[in-house]
Design a protein around this nucleic acid. Structure first.
Length: 286
DNA sequence: TCTCAGGCACTAT
DNA sequence: ATAGTGCCTGAG
């Protein structure tokens, strides 16, 4: 019986709690100061101690997997410097520290965001966990149970009723259809990964239930396409207030503005702005 | 009881 | 192109 993988990662400019709880990812469990979740298809337990991350995981987990998932390989300083293009962003970057974009597993990310439409963060999280608990695979880590989402073919087999019973509501058929597409190859994540942003996005949008916003979320959070700038009602309000004098602007124009104004890491700017307004309220944008 | 939430698809203009 | 409306669900 070999010792399970464990180790310590140096993690500067990193806030684990903020990164896991800012709303970019769903399905992590918190007990005391420990976080339990899935990286790749392996259960892991994480804890931050100052600028170090302690991890332990199921057999097969490597330190480099954890580093990569948490975004610790990214040069956060350079990224944030590139989006510090105006006084508002400087204010945002002064108040939000150590938030990094994760490298989520595409299927997990797609499921999560299919559930996000007209839904609250807490309930998305609850539904993701319920689907995993009821239909997914159980993993054990340090005496805790963690569940990964069912593979696409397995989720498809659960059917619409199986998803509704977990609280998916009107999004249930979207999940089932997406699962079928991934299972039979009609949606190929490797292809999405290989294509330029616009083409990758239009492929994701062939899935029912995936529009501009959700496609951008998946591209940003699972494929590290930092030019993606998801526009939800909060971001829309903030951008209108700060950059358009509270004038109404359509989402397409907001995305175009963001790409030009923030540059290739616009998506990082989005996540920082999002957290800022969710913390301090949308009115502080002005 | 009723409204509404981190959208989307469908339909009618 | 663009606007209006229904959709599960449960917390306030």
């Amino acid at each position: 019986m070999s010792q399970l993988p464990r180790g310590i990662l140096e993690a500067h400019d990193f806030n684990l709690a903020l990164t896991l709880e800012c709303g970019q990812v769903f399905g992590w469990h918190k007990y005391d100061d420990f976080y339990f979740g899935i990286i790749g298809d392996l259960a892991v337990e994480l804890e931050q101690q100052a600028s170090r991350i302690r991890f332990s995981g199921e057999s097969g987990l490597e330190a480099s997997d954890v580093r990569h998932y948490l975004g610790l390989d990214d040069d956060l300083g350079a990224i944030l410097a590139s989006v510090a293009v105006d006084p508002f962003m400087e204010r945002v970057l002064t108040s939000v520290k150590g938030l990094r974009l994760l490298k989520q597993e595409p299927w997990h990310c797609l499921c999560s965001y299919l559930l996000s439409s007209s839904n609250r963060v807490e309930r998305i999280d609850k539904t993701v966990k319920e689907i995993a608990r009821r239909w997914g695979r159980r993993h054990g880590i340090d005496g805790h149970d963690v569940y990964s989402l069912p593979e696409p073919a397995d989720l498809a087999a659960c059917g619409e009723s199986g998803m509704r019973s977990c609280g998916a509501g009107f999004r249930a058929p979207y999940l089932v259809q997406a699962a079928q597409m991934v299972a039979d190859g009609a949606l190929d994540f490797d292809l999405v990964r290989s294509l330029p942003y616009e083409e990758a996005k239009s492929i994701l949008m062939t899935v029912k239930g995936v529009g501009d916003k959700i496609a951008d979320c998946v591209l940003l959070f699972a494929f590290s396409r930092y030019e993606a700038f998801p526009v939800d009602v909060w971001i829309k309000k903030a951008i209108e207030q700060v950059y358009f004098g509270s004038k109404k602007v359509n989402n397409k124009e907001i995305r175009r503005f963001a790409r030009e104004h923030f540059g290739p890491y616009a998506g990082y700017a989005q996540e920082y702005i999002y957290h800022y307004i969710r913390t301090y309220g949308p009115e502080v944008a002005a």
